[in-house]
Design a protein around this nucleic acid. Structure first.
Lengths: 218, 218
DNA sequence: GGAAATATGGGTATTGCTGCTCATTTCAGT
DNA sequence: ACTGAAATGAGCAGCAATACCCATATTTCC
């Protein structure tokens, strides 16, 4: 389970965020200022940090500088969550190495999607290294591979989003919750994808996705 | 020398940005819309992409989706440079996998610092990868692999026979015909296999087989 | 401004996989 | 011969994926 650390001094907002995030399947811990946040980050080892800026006893700018200078923590995605909407604050936060900057007030939708997109982004950047290993075994059906790739590229953005998640072994219900849309919409997209890929029959799309996992996920 | 790609339709701003960035020691190329940007990105292989949103013939949102879906380009830092200051535009851009979002008008200082902080950030993320996560991930995979192999070996001959055919993407009906037994028998075996492997829920066995195809088939 | 594509949502039905219980036959083992 | 595991087969229930149908917003393109 992905671990999220919240650093926020307002207790109401902190509890609110904790609830939203844990309801979406994350393990959550929180601290109320920068100093406590750093100590907690060291032994909680979160997969992502959400952090306010204005806090007593070392603010968010202080915290991110500590995090980014600490070997074990410097690669953790860091998202500022702040009421400071001033352009200079945003720029300063990003220049200190933040990965995103959300301004208050925000919806739960925005929060969760920000978390997910940063986790996705980091995942891609970390898996970068594996991009060379396509040599012997996978050159069997080079034509097939390209054909599949081309077909996938003809899909619409939403369809691609959903296809990826199917290949990641998520059910329609899970995908619907992840994308904040109804299960029915996901299933409609699945039907359309199935048609566009020229598939037929029960479970054909699921089988296709699991068989072409590597192609779909990149 | 670091390579920067600019995708921007306004010619004045484009030239302006080109000048600023190249004066700071980067190699710069530019395109005037999303489609041209994608083609240029493919053979220029930039270290970072700056991109406007509002453009004729495929906008910035389109471009980032193409970039993020293309194996060779998906890890390139991508910064939106846009006059669209609406909150929803910013959120959409970040959710599509952008690494930063600068609103116009901006100073040359802001531009250069944004470029440098993203290049720094990506460098940290990439170096962290090679250090620990690849080896740790491989060890986990190795353990998982042995665990799976052992579980499979505890199955009876008939169960193994059926498991292989499931991994080969055959349906219960097909397996039944291949082995000259009734579909019901195949399904009974499937249930038993699912139990022995500690799986639960709908389609769990099918997903397991397609995910562990290589282990099961040898 | 109008047409087309896309995204979203609903309804209904079918198919195939899974979870249970049960029964019968075959065959190996101390 | 008796025990127990394995293989075969069936009935019944539930669930997820697919295949159709439909409607309505929004966006995009010309």
């Amino acid at each position: 389970m992905r671990k999220v650390l919240i650093v926020e001094d307002e207790i109401v907002l902190r509890n609110n965020m904790e609830e939203i995030i844990s309801l979406h399947g994350f393990e959550v811990k929180s601290a109320e200022n920068g100093e406590a946040g750093l100590l907690l980050a060291r032994h909680f080892q979160p997969d992502l940090i959400l952090c306010d800026i204005k806090m007593p006893r070392y603010d968010g700018f202080w915290l991110i500088e500590q995090i980014r200078n600490e070997v074990g923590l410097q690669s953790v995605p860091f998202i500022f969550v702040s009421a400071k909407v001033d352009r200079r604050d945003v720029r300063e936060g990003m220049e200190l190495g933040a990965d995103d900057y959300i301004t208050k007030p925000f919806t739960s939708n925005e929060l969760i999607q920000a978390i997910n997109s940063r986790l996705d982004r980091v995942k891609i950047l970390r898996s970068q290294t594996d991009a060379k290993e396509s040599t012997a075994a996978e050159e069997i059906d080079q034509k097939e591979l390209e054909k599949v790739q081309e077909m996938i590229n003809r899909l619409t953005p939403s369809e691609k989003r959903i296809l990826k998640r199917i290949a990641e072994n998520h059910s329609s219900l899970e995908i619907a919750q992840e994308l904040f849309i109804s299960t029915k919409t996901v299933e409609n997209h699945r039907s359309n994808i199935t048609n566009k890929l020229g598939l037929k029959g029960h479970l054909s799309l699921l089988r296709f996705c699991l068989n072409n996992q590597k192609i779909i996920l990149g």
